[in-house]
Design a protein around this nucleic acid. Sequence first.
DNA 1: CTCATCTACCCAAACGTTTGGGTAACGTTG
DNA 2: CAACGTTACCCAAACGTTTGGGTAGATGAG
Lengths: 373, 373
Amino acid sequence: MALKQSWAADLGYSDPGGQEMDMKEKADGGRTVTLKDLARELGVHPSTVSRVLHSGSDVAKGAASAATAERVRELASKLGYSPDPQAASLRTRRTKLLGVIVPRLSDLVLAIMYEGIDEASAEVGYSAFVMNSRDDPEEQRRKIDLMLARRVDGLIIGDAHLDGGLLQELTDRKVPFVLMNRRVPGYPSATCDDVVGGELVASHLWEMGHRQVAVIAGEPYASTAVDRTAGFLDRWRSLGGTISDDDVVWSSFDTAGGREAGEKILASGKPRPTAIFAVNDFAAIGAMGALRSHGLTVGRDVAVVGYNDTSLAAELPIPLTSVHSPMADIGRTAVQLIQAVLRGEKPEPARLEPTLYVRESSAARAPAEVSAT
Amino acid sequence: MALKQSWAADLGYSDPGGQEMDMKEKADGGRTVTLKDLARELGVHPSTVSRVLHSGSDVAKGAASAATAERVRELASKLGYSPDPQAASLRTRRTKLLGVIVPRLSDLVLAIMYEGIDEASAEVGYSAFVMNSRDDPEEQRRKIDLMLARRVDGLIIGDAHLDGGLLQELTDRKVPFVLMNRRVPGYPSATCDDVVGGELVASHLWEMGHRQVAVIAGEPYASTAVDRTAGFLDRWRSLGGTISDDDVVWSSFDTAGGREAGEKILASGKPRPTAIFAVNDFAAIGAMGALRSHGLTVGRDVAVVGYNDTSLAAELPIPLTSVHSPMADIGRTAVQLIQAVLRGEKPEPARLEPTLYVRESSAARAPAEVSAT
DNA sequence: CTCATCTACCCAAACGTTTGGGTAACGTTG
DNA sequence: CAACGTTACCCAAACGTTTGGGTAGATGAG
C-alpha cells in the first residue's frame, strides 16, 4: 500500500488486507452446481429438473408432481443453481444476447438510449452488448461481424447511414435487426420524430420574431440531421420565411463541430442571423462558444436552439432551449421492436414525439434592428 | 411508409422496399458451418480441423501435415467458418466475456473509459458487457449477479464504493475482478492519480493569488471525490492556505449537483470565495450556472476548475480549466489488469498521471480586493 | 530385418442443457 | 375386467467444441 498516510488517515481509508485469490476456480468460485447435481441429489432425472425449473410455478404438463416440483425448486434455490447459458444456447440455438452498435458511447444521446436498452432487455431476459463504430463504415462491418460471431440473436443498430448497402446486406443474410435513433426508410426503427422536432423549432423562432436564421445541420449521412433540418426548413418556408442553402451548415455532432460551424456562419459576408438552430445540443454549445468569442451574447444578440435536451441543456450558464427527445424510451422501444422481429413480425417504424423546451437562450424576442417584419 | 413527401423527395430518401425476412433461420442466416462440416468435406476428423485452426500458421505439434493444414484453412475461410463461442465455452469453461459495471454510462467519463475497454478487450479476444448500477448498492449486486449468471470470466467494476462489503464478498467467492476509475485500497485498480490531480489544482489556484477557495467535492463514497479533495486540501494547507470544512461541499457528480453546491457556497454568510474547485467537469458547469445566476462572471469574479477534461471543457463558452485524466487509457489498463488477474497474478493498482489544463475560467489572477496575500 | 521413433491422423468423451419420445403404474369408464 | 387416459416420470440424443489418448504406417538406427 503506497498511500499518502496523511489523507488516508484523515478520510478513514482502511486496508482490508489484500485479496487471497486462488484463481484456480471459475469466476463464481467453487463448484458450479448443475442440473445433474440437483437430479442426483433428488433421485430424479435431469430432464425432470429442467422441466420443473422451466414451468412457471404451475407444474408443466405432466412433468412432475407438485410435491417433486416443490422439492426441486427448493433445492435449486438452496444450492443457488444458475443454469449455464452457453449450454442452453448450444442446445436451443438462441443466445438471448442482443448486439448494440453505436457511433460512440461517449455521445450522451446514445449512452442514454443504451441505458433504456439495458433496462428493457434485462426485463425480457436478454443481455446487451455494445460496441462503438465511430461512424466508420469499415468499423461498422467489423463490429457487426464480431457480434454475429458471438451469435447474438439480433442487432440494434444505432449508427445507420442513409447511404451504403450494409443494411440491405444484413437483410439478405437474414440477420434480425432494428435501427435506433437514426432511421432509414424501409427498415424497422425506433427514433424520435425528428421532422416534427425541426418543425417545432421553426415555429418557435418564427413566433419570436426571427426572420434571419441559420442551421447547424449535423452529418448528412444521419437521418437525425437530415430530418431535423428538413422539418425546420419545410416549416420555415411554409410560414413564409426565406432561408438559403448557405445558411445551412453541415458539421459533426460534437462541440468542436458546432464551434466550427458557428464560426463559419459568423464569418460569411451575409447579415448575421438572429437565431441559430443546431440539430444537437453539443453542437449548440459549440456554437455558443463561437458567439461569445465574437462578443455576442447568447439569448440577447443571437438565439440558440439545440436538440435532444440532454441533461446539460437546462443547467448551462445560459440555459439552452432544446427539443426534448425521449431517449431512454427510444432505447426501450428498440428492444421491443427487436423482440417483435425475432418473433417473425415486421414491426412498423416507431417515431416518438418530441417536445420543445424554451429556455433563456431563445426566450427573448428577436432584436428589433435586424428583424424584418 | 408514412413519410412527408416534400422533404423525402427533397433530400433524396428512397425506399428499398421492405425487408423480406423469413426469420426461420439464425441471426447469420442459412446453415452455420461447423467443424464437422469442414471435416466431412475434407475427409478428415473434426478434431484435426480444430487443431489446425487453433495452431498459428505453424502446424501444431503433429496435428496435421502442412498440406492438410492448408486445405483446412482454405476451406474454412472459403465457407466463412466461425466457431461457435458457446460450444467452445461449454467445453473450455471460459467464455472470453468481461463484465463491466458502471454507475451510469451516460456519465461521459465512464463512457470514454468504456470505449477504452471496448478497444482493448477486442484486441485480446474478449467481449465486454456493460451494465448500469446507478450507484445503488442493491442494483450493483443485481447486475453483478446477472453478469456472473452469464458466466463472464471476470469483472471490471467502475462503481466501487469505499464502504460496503461487496468487494470482500466477491473476493471470498473468488470472482476475478478489478476496479476502474474508483479505487479501494487493497484491491487491484486502474485509476487516475486523483490525489496528484487535486494537488495540481491547489498549486495552480494558489499561484494565481487565490486565498479564499471552496471545493465541490462529489460523493463521499467515491474515491475519486475523496482523493481529489484530499489532494487539494493537503496541498493547499501545506502551501499555507486555510480552508475550513464548511468550504467543502459534497454533491452529486452531475450538473444539477454542481449548481446546487454552487448555490450553497454563494449563499453561506461567509465571504465569497474567489475560486471554486469542482472534482468533476459537470459539477463545474453547474457551478458556473449558479455563479452566472448571481451576476458573477466566471474567470473574472470567480475562478472555476473542473476535473477530467471532458471534451466539453475546452469548448464551453467560457473554456474550463480542468485536470485531464487519461480516461480511455484507464479503461485499457483495466483490461490489462483483469487479464493479469485471470492469469492468477495479483497486479498492483495502476495510477495514471493527470495533467492540468489552464483555460479562461481560471486564467486571470485573483481579484485584488478579496485576495489576502 | 528388427525395433524405436516420428508423423499424421482418428476416436471418444465431455461440457450442461433441452426435448421428443417412451413407459410403468394408477384411476376411470363402460 | 378390459380398454383407455392420465400422471409422473425416465431415456437418449442432440447442440459444436476441445483434448487426452490412441494407432497405422513411414522413416531411420543398429
